[in-house]
């Protein structure tokens, strides 16, 4: 009973939390017991290859799909049974939004805006103008990039406390992408909005994310601060003769043609690399975020 209360209190404190989420499509596991929680005001970048399960994780965390097991909470409420209060504090932009194609951009914003108590009509109008989107054009007739921007306006105009973006920059040109990232950073910095966004564009993460979570084949492989990654993770190279001494714990492991071994390793609690790094011929290279992503994902 006490444990349940403690869990309830702990999830109530965070805007978004997932516990042991598991899901599969047509027999193949997409999520394998994922735990994830977002601290208030944080900007978490969820990174992973195509098909890694990012969208599924986001949908399960928001209660848009029913996972096979595990639970998700939004502002402490079970994601599958969200109340109006929690919904009003949350905004989500799916990857390649397609909703309400028969409405014009203005009609869609008017329609959706009626439901949000803190809807910022002026922001919606000005941003449509700034992003050069014709308000009277049907959503079906907008390009994918324009449509994504209209949906971003829809999400931002509701002044959410939690903003969830699934690959928000996928259809945007570099200028629009930069503007979006600036807007996200502003929201997080000024209003303390908590942001979760998925991407496979590493430079976007470096620009705005305070933390990253790396999802690979349904597992959350690592979770840390963006600035921390360079310090905390490295590539350990062991010559063929020493490869037997490779540490058992590694985020990735690749054997080269000459028998040498490359591993992505993590410092321990005392900030030390694994013992194998001290072996003669062994070498630890610093890894940038992109290198780290590639090393693990390959």
């Amino acid at each position: 009973m006490n444990a349940m209360l403690r869990e309830k209190e702990s999830v109530a404190a965070v805007p978004l939390a997932a516990r042991g989420l598991t899901h599969c499509y047509e027999g193949s596991n997409v999520l394998r017991g994922v735990d994830l929680a977002l601290e208030p005001g944080s900007v978490l970048g969820l990174i992973g290859r195509n098909g890694a399960g990012k969208s599924t994780l986001i949908r399960a965390m928001l209660g848009l799909l029913q996972p096979l097991s595990g639970s998700a909470f939004v502002f402490g409420e079970p994601a599958l049974k969200l109340g109006d209060d929690a919904k009003a504090r949350l905004a989500y932009v799916p990857q390649q939004p397609e909703a309400l194609a028969w409405l014009t951009a203005q009609q869609m914003l008017d329609y959706v805006g009626r439901f949000y108590p803190r809807w910022d009509t002026e922001f919606a109008r000005k941003t449509l103008e700034r992003w050069k989107i014709q308000p009277n054009k049907l959503l079906a007739k907008l390009s994918p990039g324009e449509r994504q921007r209209v949906d971003l306006i829809r999400a931002l105009a509701s002044q959410p406390e939690l903003l969830v973006l699934d690959e928000p920059a996928a259809a945007l040109d570099p200028v629009a992408r930069r503007e979006l990232l600036r807007e996200v950073a502003l929201r997080a910095g000024d209003s303390g909005t908590t942001v979760l966004f998925s991407t496979h564009i590493v430079s976007d993460l470096e620009r705005v994310a305070s933390e990253i979570a790396f999802l690979h084949e349904g597992h959350l492989l690592l979770r840390c601060g963006v600035d921390e990654t360079k310090e905390r993770y490295g590539r350990l190279w062991l010559p063929a003769a020493k490869s037997a001494a490779a540490p058992a714990q590694a985020l990735s492991r690749r054997r080269h043609d000459d028998g040498s071994l490359s591993l992505v390793v993590e410092r321990d609690a005392q900030g030390r690399w694994p013992e194998a790094a001290e072996l003669p011929g062994a070498r630890v290279d610093a890894l940038g975020l992109e290198d780290l992503f590639v090393e693990i994902a390959e």
Binding site: L62, L64, L82, L90, A91, E98, A99
Partner: peptide, 10 residues
């Protein structure tokens, strides 16, 4: 999955 369902659900 990216159209009306998530919008209406939330």
């Amino acid at each position: 999955p990216n159209a009306e369902l998530p919008l209406l659900a939330l």
